[in-house]
Write a protein that binds this DNA or RNA. Structure first.
Ligand code: NAD
Ligand code: NAD
Lengths: 214, 214
DNA sequence: GAAAAATCGAGAATTTTTTAACAATATTTT
DNA sequence: AAAATATTGTTAAAAAATTCTCGATTTTTC
């Protein structure tokens, strides 16, 4: 499937956006799209879009454009959205519950199988078919069930030790919401959602704009 | 304060990370740090750290390093974390409530002043001193109160119209959690938190690693 | 107190990413 | 059916980001 070269992270982060727009187009019955039109929608340059896609193979047709449904499927396959993923969430507080409650990852087949917490008041409750379990039972659970992705929603004070426990039990993909960089072995991929950093960037640009408009 | 050139977004996104590590160092009593040590902690190269900081002025001392507390303050000033910000949240569902409940933006002075929702069951409730108000009262509220940042936590179907309403009422900074790109005039800064895209990237790298380890 | 080591800041070199150019190919028009 | 138009894929050029190098300066060692 495509070329063997290393694909830059910037490319990978643009793919989900293409995928989303293609999904919207598909939904409203558009079945052909050019890189130029996609550029107008996404804000990325047409050239960049073509370049990005050609990292993985030629999905378009010269003189014509791209078939919306086909391109969407191809990008989905590249990202792995054609497969099913089982997820657990560790830390069933504000963020952990919000994610468990979320039904909008529909585009792909993600299933939150269980949550884990150490707070006895939460243990035993359910969120959309997923039970909140005692975090003491985490290791036993992971021995029995195959889980693809673990979401860390604990306080930052314990996120590193939780991550290490997860990795010991075979987890290789972590979605980390705690504001700390996990130190992990190479074979584990960590995707951080650092909301503080996002808000701080926003703050910088907010102030910059205010200054400029003075 | 520093030079007039345009600073790249990549630099701005690294500053909050430096700021966080410096805060941690400060807390444990370290008061001197070299770009080399900061490199070991953050994973960014020492050269890049020095280059980044020199966009804003020379905060270090040759042969010595950087004063932790001083550098942290300087980065804080660059980001604008020395000022106070009033925030409202539109959409008091899962994510909106999670953010309102969050006390971890402590590093700077952010205050969630109010939430807005159209669900009568939510209107009137309070989250940490912030009242959930009727979204019909949003415009009146914004006329009276000065708000710096609006957080959009509504379903994506209404996020564009909500954003337009906010901008009409003078909002210039939006933190958007809805999975859609807002079309906004130039003078409005939008910081997107697109969790779907983050999860899709994670999925790509998870699959890539699995393939490589086969 | 002189020599050695550490370190920043600045500019140069390198690498990576993005944009532009254009030949090849498909569609549409006349 | 020929000409005009549209559009991709690919290669080249340009721009941007990162890393390297090194002189200047401070601290540490002997
Ligand atoms: N809520 C937000 O808006 C927000 C924003 C930015 C970052 N974060 C980060 O996300 C994480 C979660 O935030 P939150 O607001 O949901 O916090 P929270 O306090 O609501 O939830 C944390 C949960 O983790 C549980 N927990 C603690 N130790 C545990 C352990 N060892 N094993 C399993 N569970 C454990 C707690 O019982 C609690 O239920 C934190 O690291 C926070 O800094 C949250
Ligand atoms: N929860 C998650 O984990 C998650 C993940 C990714 C993206 N998101 C996005 O974040 C947004 C919020 O998600 P959520 O899970 O909190 O949803 P939610 O349904 O829990 O909350 C949405 C809230 O918005 C309110 N609302 C609807 N229309 C409104 C309007 N016109 N004005 C004011 N309020 C209005 C609803 O009454 C509801 O309380 C959505 O766009 C969702 O796609 C959420």
């Amino acid at each position: 499937m495509g070329k063997n070269e290393k694909i830059s992270p910037a490319v990978i982060r643009r793919l989900p956006k293409y995928y989303r727009y293609l999904g919207e187009l598909s939904k409203v019955g558009v079945n052909k799209i050019s890189s130029r039109e996609l550029s107008d929608m996404t804000g990325f340059s047409a050239s960049q879009i073509r370049q990005d896609l050609n990292n993985f193979g030629g999905f378009g047709q010269q003189g014509f454009g791209y078939d919306v449904e086909n391109l969407r499927n191809e990008i989905g396959k590249i990202l792995g959205l054609d497969k099913k993923y089982k997820i657990i969430i560790v830390g069933a507080g504000n963020i952990g519950q919000a994610i468990a409650n979320y039904t909008g990852f529909y585009e792909a087949d993600y299933e939150v199988v269980a949550l884990f917490d150490k707070n006895p008041k939460l243990i035993g409750l359910s969120i959309r078919n997923a039970l909140i379990m005692d975090s003491d039972d985490l290791e036993d659970f992971l021995e029995k069930e195959h889980i693809d992705i673990a979401v860390i929603c604990t306080p930052k004070s314990v996120c590193q030790q939780v991550a290490e426990q997860l990795v010991r039990c075979g987890i290789r993909a972590i979605w980390n919401f705690a504001p700390k960089d996990l130190k992990m072995p190479e074979e584990v991929y960590v995707e951080n959602v650092h909301l503080n950093e996002s808000l701080f960037s926003l703050t910088y640009y907010y102030n910059k704009m205010k200054k400029e408009s003075e």
